[in-house]
Every structure is written in C-alpha cells, then in structure tokens.
C-alpha cells in the first residue's frame, strides 16, 4: 500500500540514460555529481541549471537538470547531489523538485591535519550594497 503511488525509482545517470523512454514522466530519484563548469545560477529567479554525471562515469554521459528553489548551502561544482523529479528523455532534462547535497564523508586518515592560512578569508565576504 502506498508504495506504488509514492515510491520513486532510485537510479544512476547511466541507468537513466539507457532506460530510453521507459522512465519518461516517472517519479525518479537520481544521484550524481555536478559537472564542472555546467552551473548556471539565476539566483534572482531562484533557478539553477546544471548537468549531473555518475561519479565514476565519463563526462559525456550526463543529464541536464532544471531546479527551481533555494540553492542548498553546500551546492557547488563536483559535489554529489540527490535529485528528485521527473525526467523527459526527449530533451534529456530532469526537472527536479528536490535537490539535496550529500556532505562528503569525513577524512580521517593517519596524517594529522595540515596547517592552513586563513588570512585571505575576508575577501570573499565583502558586500557593497548598491555597488553594481
């Protein structure tokens, strides 16, 4: 009970691409990595466009993503994301209703943490209202 209507297929990008039209219009959950240089961030309209590919997969096997909503905090290039939405195979476009970023697992190796210099930290945060 319930699963039929509310369950979604959990797929990799390669699986989705090779499914042909079978998955068109289906509720899907896809995980993949954001392709470098593919992010188009239209913050003022709360729209994000980017491509995702499988973590280990080749760059040319990708799906276009359209997402309208608030950009998650740690969203950026090359992070692993989990997307939920519907897939249009004709346009190779996933219209996502949910965008979650998976936090990278903590690195806990043998080596001690390296020292970092944070002296240039402030530059990023300069905000000048009305400057543009």
């Amino acid at each position: 009970m319930g699963i039929k209507e509310s369950g979604v297929y959990y797929m990799t990008i390669a699986e989705l691409k090779s499914s042909g039209t079978a998955m068109s219009g289906q509720g899907l959950r896809v995980s993949g990595n954001v392709v470098n240089g593919s992010i188009e961030d239209i913050a003022k309209e709360l729209i994000l466009k980017f491509r995702v590919k499988d973590e280990e997969g080749p760059d040319n096997v990708f799906v276009n993503v359209f997402y309208k909503g608030v950009k998650p905090d740690s969203f950026k290039e090359d992070v692993q994301v989990i997307l939920e939405g519907k897939y249009d195979s004709a346009r190779n476009l996933l219209t996502a209703t949910t965008l979650l970023v998976k936090c990278p697992s903590r690195y806990e190796g043998e080596a001690p943490p390296e020292d970092h210099d944070y002296s240039n930290k402030k530059k990023r945060l300069e905000v000048k209202p009305g400057a543009n």
Partner: peptide, 13 residues
Amino acid sequence: NKITVGPPFFEQV
C-alpha cells in the same frame, strides 16, 4: 530496481 520511498509514503501510511 532500487526504489526509495519518501515522506509521501510515510505520511500516507
């Protein structure tokens, strides 16, 4: 097939 169920399933049931 790996099928996940989200909040709608839990809320319905």
